[in-house]
Amino acid sequence: MPSYALHRRAGGFGTRTSLPSMLQMDAGVVTEMLAHCLDGLPDEACGMIGGDAEAGHGTICYPTRNAAASSRIYEVDPRELLAADRDAEDRGASLIGVFHSHTHTPAYPSPTDVAQAPDPDWHYILVSLRDSEPVIRSFRIRDGNITEEPVVITGG
């Protein structure tokens, strides 16, 4: 079993195989995520995605408060994070990723995003609001390496 650390600095990473190579999101989840990002302007907005980790399928959006209240950084409100984690577990799902908006930069993980990425199994979803149309992209981040994955929107 691979062993991961909460933070790269703490070391202890292994290598994991057979990860889902894409992120599937229900249309309603995408709508809720985009609305939360737009509502958050001029600050960065953030939230968690719950769903089926094995399938890489996001079925629940948890919009959360940006505890940093900043246009340049975000921190998922710790209490809301715990509530999301418990709710997902109660529904037989789990947290599979985090989304946040970039208000002035492209939808690509910043060095801060990479350094602070807490879980190598999560999907890291970026929503850029720099241009008139929001841009959604998803990434895996492990051992400091960024790999983009396709986002497939299903249903609705």
Partner: peptide, 28 residues
């Protein structure tokens, strides 16, 4: 616990301690 007494926060039988990664980052 950061908003309680941090590591000195008391716990009683029946309470649950939860650990989660802090989720943070930034665009710039």
């Amino acid at each position: 616990v950061r908003y309680l007494d941090k590591l000195y926060t008391t716990v009683r039988e029946g309470q649950v301690v939860s650990i989660l990664p802090a989720v943070a980052g930034g665009g710039a």
